[in-house]
Amino acid sequence: MKPVFAKILDGKVNDVYSLKVVDAPYFSTEFHFHEECQLTYTLESEGRRMIGDSIADFTSDELIFVGSNLPHVWHNHKQCEDENENTAYARSISIFIHPNKILGLFREPDTIERVKNFFRIAKRGMKFDGLIKEKLQQAMLKVSAQTTEIKRLIALLQILDLLCSTTSYELLASPGYTNNYQLKDNDRMDKILKYVFDNFNQEILLTTAAEMTNMNKQAFCRYFKNRTQKTFVTFVNEVRIGHACKLMAQTDLQISELAYSCGFNSLTNFNKFFKLAKGITPKEYKKMLIVG
């Protein structure tokens, strides 16, 4: 899935931020990136998201900050799209902040450096939980409820202050991640990501993926790794492991049942790839969930 470059504030030279409220059957599956940073509060929905090279399931009540030019997508499960064609299932509030323009509002060197440092860290993407998540969510609702531009800007600066003051977040993309996507790329990656997200619980063949992009296997492997910084097999297994973690948290399925329901053809492979991805075995992970 090729990330499309998007201009959020194009034509609005003086705007430092933009507010977007989504109330739709499902989120767009377009993989894209933009210069503006994006703070997204998912009020209602579930599916799978990709931010940089981070792949994980998402659910309602999630709060994510996406840094400048970091490719990302929120993709609903296919069954959710099918079942909710006529109902609003995807609800979210997003605030887009232009980093350079908002820095232009400040004059004190310490403040400028503080905000710059936050934007540097945010290039890997951030997930917030706990008290800071609650404060940010309340502040975002406050921004969306304001009726005047001055009040919205004041509420926005309060959000920025919260973001720059906390260290309570999970970084999403890996430390060495860089955006290698080019605007001249065609829709090859669009097809592949959607194909994997919708079919990870079935057999996914490298040959099939290569054919979908009109490449041979060797060329496809090079192309995919250059764009995502991981092999296709690793990518597919990470999607499957992410779903397995979700099922462990939400169901009482046995580990063997989890393995096959997530697309692994053997319990041995599931245990092997789970430990590679998480550093512990599925059994240890499940026990940790119970204790927690």
Score class of each variant (00 low, 15 high):
residue 3 P to G: 09
residue 5 F to G: 02
residue 9 L to F: 00
residue 12 K to V: 00
residue 15 D to I: 00
residue 25 P to Y: 02
residue 28 S to W: 06
residue 28 S to M: 08
residue 29 T to L: 04
residue 30 E to S: 12
residue 33 F to G: 00
residue 34 H to K: 06
residue 36 E to R: 02
residue 50 M to H: 01
residue 58 F to V: 09
residue 59 T to R: 08
residue 63 L to E: 01
residue 63 L to H: 00
residue 64 I to C: 09
residue 65 F to V: 08
residue 68 S to N: 09
residue 70 L to F: 10
residue 71 P to E: 13
residue 76 N to T: 11
residue 77 H to L: 15
residue 80 C to F: 15
residue 88 A to D: 12
residue 94 S to T: 15
residue 96 F to L: 06
residue 100 N to K: 10
residue 105 L to K: 10
residue 106 F to C: 05
residue 110 D to N: 11
residue 111 T to Q: 11
residue 113 E to Q: 12
residue 116 K to T: 12
residue 117 N to P: 00
residue 122 A to I: 07
residue 126 M to L: 15
residue 132 I to F: 06
residue 133 K to N: 04
residue 142 K to C: 06
residue 144 S to I: 02
residue 145 A to Q: 12
residue 151 K to Q: 13
residue 154 I to M: 08
residue 155 A to G: 02
residue 161 D to R: 14
residue 174 S to R: 07
residue 176 G to K: 11
residue 178 T to D: 03
residue 183 L to Q: 14
residue 185 D to S: 07
residue 189 M to F: 10
residue 191 K to C: 07
residue 200 F to A: 08
residue 200 F to M: 03
residue 210 A to T: 07
residue 215 M to T: 12
residue 215 M to Y: 12
residue 215 M to V: 03
residue 219 A to R: 10
residue 221 C to G: 09
residue 222 R to D: 09
residue 225 K to H: 08
residue 228 T to N: 14
residue 236 V to H: 00
residue 245 C to Q: 15
residue 246 K to T: 10
residue 249 A to S: 14
residue 252 D to T: 15
residue 252 D to A: 14
residue 252 D to P: 01
residue 253 L to Q: 13
residue 269 N to S: 10
residue 270 F to G: 06
residue 274 F to V: 07
residue 276 L to M: 11
residue 276 L to A: 12
residue 276 L to P: 00
residue 278 K to E: 13
residue 281 T to C: 06
residue 284 E to L: 11
residue 285 Y to V: 01
residue 287 K to L: 14
residue 290 I to G: 01
residue 290 I to F: 08
residue 290 I to T: 13
residue 292 G to P: 00
